[in-house]
């Protein structure tokens, strides 16, 4: 069985939509039966957006292959994949949509999530660029999307290669779509039908529906570190909050603390084994995963208010979230 492959392209070297469409116009119902007019609406969005989007998509020549990227600011900031950038401070050749060759330098990268930033060297040029979608949770399964990139490397006669498909799955750091990707696509953009970047092509599995993209979450979480050319290897840096509790599955749907880690934010806040978590910052916590996500959604250093049940007593506890310790590296 083949496992997970990075699409290191690595082929040995051989939104500014005019007439803005509202979300309701462009997004046919995510699930349920699709109608012909739904498909034609998707087509209209794609064809309207493509001339603009493609100008921001670039091919990147790495030391041993070719990959893709997307320009997201007028001064030439590029989003790509960490396995394309490999390390900060590396200068690479970048090919624009019209075939013009320019240079860019890698900034920071998140090796865990496969996210990286690059900067085009020439900053007195107004670079063609696209917008990034800041509403990460809207990239839900069923949403139509557009993948662009340079599979196999830049080819002027062919042009950028378009794929249209749907988001199949969303996880904390990634999106899976049925837009087929291959070597050379790595680092290229996934767009929603508003023409905003929602993902960066990262890797594929064997099946045609197994195309993985870095979501915007790792980029936003570590934006400043990435811009300052930091390497993020584990989620301790800019990774969101850490409380230091192990949660057991108690009877019913209670979130019961099974373990308190030594010198963790939880132990410092006086939380105890067998406490049951009822609410976080006033928000009821119905499931373990929702609680975990609520903690992770807050940056380290945030003070949270937990409502706990201890025995028959209900109490409020304040805790200051820390960073994920290194030994939990996964």
């Amino acid at each position: 069985m083949r496992r997970r492959f990075t699409i290191a392209l690595i082929i040995a070297c051989t939104g500014f939509l005019s007439g803005r469409l509202t979300a309701a116009d462009v997004l046919p119902q995510a699930t349920g039966r699709t109608s012909l007019s739904d498909l034609l609406k998707v087509q209209q969005s794609v064809q309207t957006l493509l001339p603009k989007l493609r100008t921001a998509v670039v091919a990147i020549q790495t030391h041993d292959g070719t990959a893709s990227g997307v320009i997201i600011t007028e001064d030439g900031l590029i989003l790509t994949a960490a396995h394309v950038a490999e390390k900060p401070g590396r200068e690479m050749r970048v090919i624009l949509d019209d075939g013009k060759v320019v240079k860019a330098t890698t900034l920071g990268l998140d090796k865990t999530a496969d996210a990286a930033l690059m900067q085009l060297n020439d900053n007195d040029v107004k670079w063609p660029h696209v917008k990034v979608c800041r509403e990460i949770t809207k990239a839900q399964p069923g949403v139509w999307c557009i993948a662009l990139g340079h599979p196999g490397g830049f080819d002027k006669q062919r042009g950028v290669v378009l794929r249209v498909g749907k988001i199949v799955k969303q996880t904390a750091n990634s999106l899976q779509t049925d837009c087929v990707l291959m070597g050379g696509d790595s680092g290229g953009p996934l767009f929603n039908l508003a023409g905003e970047v929602i993902g960066i092509h990262s890797q594929i599995w064997e099946d045609r529906d197994q195309n993985m993209h870095v979501s915007m979450a790792p980029f936003f979480r570590s934006w400043d570190d990435l811009k300052m050319s930091q390497i993020i290897r584990v989620w301790s840096t800019g990774s969101g909050g850490y409380l230091g509790v192990g949660l057991g599955l108690s009877d019913g749907i209670e979130i019961k603390i099974a373990l308190i880690k030594k010198s963790s934010p939880a132990s410092q806040a006086g939380m105890m084994q067998d406490d049951v978590i009822l609410a976080l910052d006033g928000e009821k916590m119905p499931s373990v995963s929702q609680f975990q996500n609520a903690v992770r959604a807050r940056p380290a250093g945030t003070q949270i208010l937990l409502q706990l049940k201890r025995g028959t007593e209900t109490l409020d506890v304040k805790a200051t979230l820390g960073s994920q310790p290194k030994e939990d590296e996964g």
Partner: peptide, 27 residues
């Protein structure tokens, strides 16, 4: 079980996310 959950911590998806598409719902 507690240790297992700590590991899971790293890899859980957003609770509010829709379930993955079934093959029938894909493109």
């Amino acid at each position: 079980r507690a240790i297992l959950l700590i590991v899971l911590w790293i890899d859980t998806s957003h609770a509010e996310s829709r379930p993955p598409l079934t093959p029938g719902e894909r493109t």
